[in-house]
Design a protein around this nucleic acid. Structure first.
Length: 531
RNA sequence: GCGGGUGUGGUUCAAUGGUAGAACCUCAGCUUCCCAAGCUGAUGACGCGGGUUCGAUUCCCGCCACCCGCUCCA
């Protein structure tokens, strides 16, 4: 390594990364000339190559290169892997069966003061009512109370309990120890004037509640040109359900036996309340999901296998181990049906966050679809020793990865600044498999036949790799430009090339150069790039 | 969703109630046999919409976007 070179370890800031992504064409704000759209991003010329390489690496490593005749290291047995590309739009009943429609469409109310969030239908608003001595009721409506409960069903005593002190103070003004009864205000939350008088649970001042807002994280759309109830459809919030609903089709046609996995890469949409952190939480994003089907009694073993394998995958593609974490969920964090779940997390500049979740979902999804569709989705085992074992629902291990989150993590981990000859050099140390451009070909100077020779080399490599050609400006500048793009190798035609048939190959990370025969270039690059 | 901050060429930053400057990048030319060299020239910006004003990039209001802290994340 040249003496003028000095490594400098820095933690990349999001500002620097976002700026580089824009400057070099990795990522742009979506529809930027119109002011952008919250939570949406576009991949530029370099970004699309990088992200495609991430997806390609996943597809190759998980599916295409999988050998289903051998038990991989750490696997309980051999298994098969097949792919799928299901439609983004599906019959809306899918989302009823999966639980996505039911649980996430309630109006929510926030408290600005206590920062609590309530379901609108579970917040009861009432006014204190005092009965005067002459029997006329006298309602105190300048103070309304909100309390958790179910509309119309909560006992007066229970409501009073929540705000006993405050109610007591008001009651004193009427010379009583407690209101005679409570009047319910069903519409108080939606009326801005009344809402401003509501005292929220545990709040000190009234008027801290927001208007009820519908929260459904699924994007709704319509199938066909007519917009009516029968045409409602959803943009899928995950690709997984497309796999589950095709379980029987794959089983019947792909000649697979348990255990086997179905992989899929595709867009998904979630109407996130609060998109944040560059591309990390986007409303439109891409998932790389596997549903791995196995015998119930083997599920725990397969869960461990997939968890460890997926954790290792990121390291194999260059992410530094110290920046990766495997976090096993507590029992309390697990969904009711899940038997285990772990997150692969990365130390982003904005904090440790999830790249991928590996979950043991048992037979929840298949049984939901079996129940809702009425179709028998059980696996038939003709080798079973008894009738009870012959038909059963497989259990499912689900490694679910975010392609955009992975791409962002690779970008963050690749970003380096070091010092060359006293100047700061920005370099993206992307794994050669992921680098958008595999090599750049330069003539050292723009004369003496060097451009022609360099172009000849460029054209021959172009058939096999994504390579770039550049003859503009000083050679050092061209090297630096490629450093920011993450190009691992720069091939330079110089004065000796014509006589010797060799070029210099400059390494992005070490800055070292060595001569390689022109005939050897293709093999050299293939060795460097292949997994 | 709440609170705070920021919006000026591709990037990073100035200045200004009256013609918006720079550095780097980019492009063209000259030069150049290995790490952002030099010279000449060129392109290119006040987030959007209202208001105040003779005149607004500047002041006011609204919106949008991004960043930070909470919150949320099936």
């Amino acid at each position: 390594m040249p003496a003028r070179y000095a490594e400098r370890i820095i933690m990349v800031s999001m500002d620097k990364l976002v700026s580089l992504c824009k400057r070099r064409g990795f990522v742009f704000p979506s529809s930027e000339i119109y002011g952008g759209l919250n939570g949406c991003w576009d991949y530029g010329p370099l970004g699309v190559e990088l992200k495609r390489n991430v997806k390609q690496a996943w597809w190759d490593d998980m599916l295409r290169h999988h050998d289903d005749t051998l038990a991989s290291a750490g696997a309980p047995s051999a298994f098969s892997m097949v792919g799928l590309d299901s439609a983004l739009l599906m019959n809306p009943t899918v989302w009823e069966a999966s639980g996505h429609v039911g649980g996430f469409s309630d109006p929510m109310v926030d408290c600005r003061e206590t920062r609590a969030r309530y379901r609108g239908d579970q917040l009861v608003v009432f006014a204190l009512v005092f009965v005067a001595d002459d029997g006329n009721s006298e309602e105190v409506d300048e103070i309304l109370f909100a309390a958790p409960g179910e509309a119309g069903k909560t006992a007066d005593a229970e409501l009073i309990g929540v705000h006993r002190k405050r109610i007591g103070t008001i009651a004193k003004r009427f010379g009583k120890s407690a209101p005679d009864h409570l009047a319910l205000h069903d519409d108080a939350l939606t009326d801005p004037e009344l809402r401003s008088k509501i005292l929220a649970p545990n709040a000190k001042e009234p008027g801290s509640l927001t208007a009820p807002r519908a929260f459904n994280l699924m994007f709704k759309t319509h199938v066909g040109a007519m917009e009516d109830h029968s045409s409602v459809a959803y943009l899928r919030p995950e690709t997984a359900q497309g796999i589950f609903v095709n379980f029987k089709n794959v089983l019947d046609t792909a000649r697979v036996k348990l255990p086997f996995g179905i992989g899929q890469i595709g867009k998904a949409f979630r109407n996130e309340i609060n998109p944040r952190n560059f591309t990390f939480r986007s409303r439109e994003f891409e998932q790389m999901e596997i549903e791995f089907f196995c015998r119930p009694e083997e599920a725990a073993q397969w869960y461990t296998f997939w968890r460890d394998r997926r954790f290792q995958w990121y390291q194999d593609l260059g992410i530094r181990a110290e920046n990766l974490h495997l976090r096993e969920h507590d029992k309390s964090e697990l969904a009711h049906y899940a038997a285990g779940c772990a997150d692969v997390e990365y130390d982003f500049p904005f904090g440790q966050s999830e790249l991928e979740g590996i979950a043991n979902r048992a037979d929840f999804d298949l049984s939901q679809h079996m129940q809702t569709s009425g179709k028998d989705l059980r696996y038939f085992d003709d080798q079973a020793t008894s009738d009870e074992l012959r038909r059963f629902l497989p259990h499912v291990i689900e490694p679910s990865a975010g392609a955009d989150r992975g791409t962002l993590a690779f970008l963050c981990d690749a970003y380096h600044e070091d010092e060359v000859g006293g100047e700061t050099r920005t370099v993206m140390r992307l794994h050669p498999r992921l680098a958008p451009i595999k090599a750049a070909v330069f003539p050292l100077v723009k004369k003496e036949g060097m451009p022609e020779k360099a172009q000849e080399i460029y054209r021959s490599l172009r058939k096999h790799f994504n390579v770039a050609y550049d003859e503009k400006g000083a050679i050092g500048r061209r090297y630096r430009r490629q450093d920011e793009a993450g190009t691992p190798y720069c091939i330079t035609v110089d004065g000796d090339t014509l006589a010797q048939g060799s070029v210099t190959v400059r390494d992005r990370d070490t800055l070292e150069q060595h001569r390689v025969g022109v005939d050897e270039l293709q093999n050299f690059l293939r060795d460097a790039i292949e997994p």
